[in-house]
Computed example of a mutant assay.
Amino acid sequence: MIRTLLVDDDALTLELHRDYLGRLEGYEVVGECSGARAALNALVAGTGDRRIDLVLLDVTMPDGTGVEVLRHLRARGVTVDVIAVTAVRDAETVHQMAALGVVQYLVKPFTFAMFRERLEQHRAYREQSIAEGQASQAEIDALLGASRPTGSIRVPKGLSQASLARVTAAARTAGVLSASEAADLLGMSRVAVRRYLEHLADEGRLERVPRYHGRGRPETEYRWR
Rank of each mutant, 00 (worst) to 15 (best):
W224I: 04
A38E: 15
D141S: 12
H72K: 14
G46I: 04
S189H: 13
A113G: 11
V176N: 06
S160T: 15
T60F: 06
E198D: 15
E68Y: 01
T13G: 08
T173V: 11
H17E: 14
E117Y: 06
A42S: 09
R217S: 11
V155W: 04
A169M: 11
L14E: 03
V30Y: 09
A39D: 04
G22P: 00
G214V: 10
H122R: 04
V85S: 01
Y20H: 08
R205Q: 15
T111G: 10
V155S: 07
T4L: 00
D53P: 00
H95W: 10
D10Y: 03
R3N: 03
D58H: 06
D58G: 06
W224A: 02
A142Y: 02
E127M: 12
A135W: 05
L12Y: 04
S189L: 11
V44C: 03
K108D: 11
P109W: 06
L200I: 06
E117C: 06
A183T: 08
A192Q: 12
K108W: 02
L186N: 02
V82G: 00
A98N: 11
A75M: 05
Y20T: 05
R166A: 14
L73E: 04
A38Y: 05
A45T: 13
L206F: 02
Y27D: 03
V59S: 05
V80T: 13
T13A: 14
Y222H: 05
P149D: 03
Q137D: 13
G77F: 04
G66M: 12
V7P: 00
R74K: 11
A113K: 13
G46A: 15
Y27A: 00
A192R: 10
A36M: 11
A45V: 08
S34K: 14
G64Q: 12
A162E: 11
H199S: 10
R116Q: 13
V209C: 10
R172Y: 09
A99C: 12
V82Y: 01
K108R: 09
D81N: 15
A42G: 02
A165M: 10
D184G: 08
A179T: 05
V155C: 09
R194Y: 07
V88Q: 14
S136Q: 02
A124Q: 00
Y222M: 08
G48S: 11
R23F: 01
E221K: 12
A124T: 03
D8R: 08
S34Y: 07
I52A: 01
A36N: 08
V55P: 01
R166P: 05
L186E: 07
V155Y: 01
F115R: 04
V82S: 06
V155A: 12
V80C: 01
D58Y: 07
D49H: 15
T47S: 15
L56I: 06
